[in-house]
Design a protein around this nucleic acid. Structure first.
Lengths: 337, 337
DNA sequence: CTGTTAGCGCCTTCAA
DNA sequence: TTGAAGGCGCTAACAG
């Protein structure tokens, strides 16, 4: 691969001049500039970012780590973050923790070693190793948590207002006349899931109902597992709920599969609402009522904060906490039966 | 951020010794080794990959560029590639071209500048700038094309056997008794789409049918546009097809939306088959018959080839061309009506 | 305006 | 087994 020296030799100038042309930091006379550009093209020269970064101690690169690219929510997050990064001439590299805390640790090191200037992190759903994050921040790396917010770690964070999202869904079901509402939720290691569940409880209480123990179904983020769990609940002797509320997308998918497997139809047999849009939910018949998270915005806002941190335009010593509103998208699955 | 020098000072050794401990390339006595490790931990030291790469001229990093992370097919590709990379202790960074050729050019430069050791590329669907790719390869960058294969560029490539995939779908519909089959296809700038269409034609001919001009619907990869196109076709005076075959996922989504909007049900009103799995297609009612591409495998194989190139274990001067088989996944949407 | 030069942090001979 | 030193390719003073 061509180096700046080869370009300089071919153009008959010094490497300094080539560098000036490339960075545009110093004026260079037109003829030399053209010479240099010609040489660059002829040699198919690409500046070595690695060397540049070593020198400037800047990479203009952000990292984003998500648990699973195949959950539609995360690509949306990434697109939002990417747009914000690009607008400030940063670029974004994405990596995948697969909800594995060891992999998360390794990838955090990797990103750190690659000297990304900041990290957008959706923590892995494992028992969250708060110290991984704390160490990172102490190590001088800017970090913004998205979507899933770790407990007890003072760190910038952007997510949907989880409690509100849960409340929104349950309130809607209550308003539609449902009373025996089951809640299917994900890993309680995640604060976001706990908060959503809290929102559900709140909504029930405000309506003079209580959250029945046998109607809270603790699942995980694997639709297959959730489906199995739900099939058991839906088949068991006890009276069926008249509605199911799911606190996240993958869990919701599992619920829907279980309903299909049990031959139950929504909303005729029981209503269904979920937090997080399911892929192609508009094509499902009947369509699904959804508490929509502003995924793109969350990614965008988080990247904004990260960039502000990097460029030092945010007051230090206090962390930003942004909670965006969820929105109810009505479908047929929660029609009054 | 701590440097190797600080670690050396704290541990009371030279930077050479620290380097030896880290790389493990030279034996270091146990006590010193422990000293060094203690210092590393105390300083929260992360080796600077940038400096290391500059020195070793190796980054152990692969890049993958896809057009759109929100199309479910691509994350699967990425996971496969990531698995293969990880197995050889490489890591993979993903970027997004948004099917924009300018962005593709910039990102290719960026990846090159970042000195990734090879690139997995799903080309943007724009009029494919073959010279972008050729230049890259001439510039000494290893490149493997996935899924969408550019014309006339000798480059390693891995994809599904497109013609076969098209043939598979149409043959199935014919076998189910459908005769008036419309084909909805994507951008013809993509060789893969042309090949798939060719496969369709082939299957029709072999069955003694011909491909009618008014039954080939040229769409794109935006479901919204496709839906509009299809609505027009389905409403127009001419007799409706008795089946629709879509040559890719996003196009297929558009077809389904159009059918829904027109109040047409599958397979009662017309049958439907698509290449590429739709998200949660098992939940759609009725379920969709799909020509499934081995997405994970494609990513995996492509990364394998790329790594083999990098490690120089593949004969030079000829390019690998891998075509994997598609598989028919039966659903209800193509039941004999 | 152009050229020279001193590192950025690390790895890797080579010598001790 | 350990340390010293050169240099990877580039940028940013600084000198000319």
């Amino acid at each position: 691969m061509a180096t700046i020296k080869e370009v300089a030799d071919l153009a008959g100038v010094s490497i300094g001049t080539v560098s000036h042309v490339i960075t545009g930091s110093v004026r260079v006379s037109e003829p030399l500039r053209l010479n240099v550009h010609a040489a660059i093209r002829k040699l198919n020269y690409y500046p070595n970012h690695i060397a540049r970064s070593l020198k400037t101690r800047k990479t203009r690169t952000l990292g984003i780590m998500v648990p699973d690219l195949t959950i539609p929510y995360f690509p949306k997050l990434i697109r939002g973050a990417e747009a914000a990064a690009r607008a400030k001439d940063y670029w974004l590299i994405a990596v995948n923790s697969e909800d594995n805390e060891h992999r998360q640790r390794d990838l955090l090191s990797l990103l750190h070693s690659q000297r990304v200037e900041g990290i957008l992190l959706v923590v892995a759903a494992a028992p969250i190793p708060a110290n991984q994050i704390a160490r990172m921040v102490e190590g001088g790396m800017w970090l913004v948590c998205l979507d899933r917010i770790p407990d007890r770690v003072p760190v910038d964070s952007v997510s949907v207002d989880d409690s509100e999202a849960g409340k929104l869904g349950i309130e809607h079901l209550i308003q539609q006349g449902y009373r025996r509402i089951a809640t299917a939720t994900g890993p309680q290691a995640l604060k976001s899931e706990r908060q959503r569940l809290r929102g559900c409880k709140l909504a029930l209480h405000e309506a003079g109902l209580s959250m029945q123990k046998d109607l809270v179904w603790f699942g995980n983020l694997r639709p297959k597992d959730v489906a199995e769990l739900c099939r058991a609940r839906l088949k068991s002797g006890v009276p069926r709920p008249d509605a199911i509320f799911s606190t996240n997308g993958p869990t919701g998918l599992g619920v829907l599969r279980a309903m299909r497997d049990c031959g139950l139809r929504t909303p005729d047999d029981l209503a269904f609402v979920t937090i997080d849009e399911l892929a192609c939910d508009d094509l499902l018949y009947p369509s699904i009522t959804t508490v929509v998270q502003p995924a793109y915005d969350i990614g965008w806002r988080a990247a904004q904060i990260l960039l502000d941190r990097i460029e030092n335009t945010l007051p230090e010593g206090q962390s930003e906490t942004i909670r965006l509103h969820a929105r109810l998208k009505l479908g047929d699955s929660s029609r009054r039966s």
